Amino acid sequence: MAPSEVVEIIEVNGEPATEAALRVPALDSYGHFTAMQVRGGRVRGRDLHLARLDAATRELFGAGLDGERVRELLRHALLDVSDASARVYVHWPAGEEDARVMVTVRPPQTKPDRPHGLMSVPYARPLPHIKHLGGFAQTHFLRAAGRAGFDEALLTAPGGLVTEGAVTNIAFWDGTSVVWPQAPSLLGITMALLEPRLPSVRRPVTLADLPSYASAFLANSQGIAPVDRIDDVRFTVDPELMGTVKAAYEAVEWDVI
């Protein structure tokens, strides 16, 4: 296999996935995962990914997940693939002594560098601080947004409180600061990398507040993209802001897996 060639790879505990091994993820949605982009065998925010996996495993299953084990399984699945989209899924079937770790490797992805439109929906994820499985509602609302001509769904809590996108974090620009919504949500790895590198604040944002913001952008493991509308509220795509955000992200060091 050429160093950058990618085929779909699924391994469970370091072994090629068998029908028996896949019964657990197929039939049991109780678990969690992390998603990352690999370039040149490296990933941004490696230690944040490992900490996320360990913390969620402790909360859901009562014991931690060793980061070096995760790195070894990732390296094994990637083999000589240098660029990829990789995910690490964690289950812990009853009666097993250790967590079951599934690694998937697919072709690399980059978020389209074009303005995105969002449709607000009245839904907030349960246990939002965990990147857990079983996201039926997120998928449902994301597809509904697509059918309505939008790119992403914006999840909102009672009172129109903005929480996060279906598969992204969102941030707003008030002319001085990058405003990350203060609400129960997932701290995405890209958000965690950007927040300390930008003039950031956290405060509640509601749908009623949206016209007061000049610009907005999305962030997830695939990258960053500007927002040009949420429902019928329009936002300016600010090249200077996006240049600053992208420069901050590009400055993040890539970590060896």
Score class of each variant (00 low, 15 high):
V105A: 01
V162T: 08
G41F: 00
P226R: 03
R69T: 12
T168R: 08
A124P: 01
E72I: 00
L142A: 15
E5T: 11
A214N: 03
D54K: 07
A17E: 06
M242G: 02
G40I: 01
D151Q: 03
Q109K: 15
L187K: 12
D174F: 04
L118M: 13
F172G: 10
H140T: 12
T156V: 13
W173V: 01
H132D: 04
P108H: 10
T190A: 08
T34M: 04
D83G: 10
R42K: 14
G160F: 10
A166Q: 02
R106L: 14
R71H: 00
L127F: 12
G146Q: 15
R100S: 13
G14R: 09
I257C: 01
D54M: 05
M119W: 10
P3Q: 11
A51W: 08
D83T: 07
D54P: 02
S82K: 14
W180I: 10
T139D: 09
T34A: 04
E68W: 02
T104R: 10
M242T: 00
G117C: 05
A35M: 10
R100G: 01
T104M: 05
A148V: 01
S29F: 09
R39V: 12
V103H: 05
H32R: 09
V24D: 06
T104H: 04
E152N: 05
I189Q: 08
R52F: 06
S221M: 13
G159W: 08
A153I: 06
A208F: 07
Y89N: 11
D47A: 07
M242A: 06
Y89E: 05
E59H: 14
L79M: 13
V205W: 10
M36N: 03
T206I: 06
A77D: 08
D231I: 06
F217W: 08
L198D: 05
G62E: 11
A26R: 13
A216S: 11
A77F: 08
R100A: 05
V178S: 07
Y249L: 12
V201H: 02
E8R: 14
P158N: 08
P112F: 06
P181A: 08
I230W: 05
R202Y: 08
D66T: 08
L241K: 03
P108I: 11
W180C: 07
W92A: 11
G95E: 03
A219I: 03
Y30A: 10
P16C: 13
Q182W: 06
E72P: 00
V90E: 01
V233N: 03
D47E: 15
R114S: 10
R58C: 10
S120Y: 07
D255M: 06
A17R: 09
D28R: 11
L50G: 04
V38A: 10
G243I: 11
A166H: 04
V7I: 12
P93T: 01
T244A: 15
E5Y: 12
R147K: 12
A2S: 14
A144V: 12
E15K: 14
V178H: 02
T110L: 11
Q222P: 01
S212Q: 14
R44W: 00
A153F: 04
F136W: 14
M242Y: 07
P126L: 13
Q182H: 12
K131G: 11
G45N: 04
L142G: 02
I224N: 03
R46H: 03
T34V: 08
V233P: 00
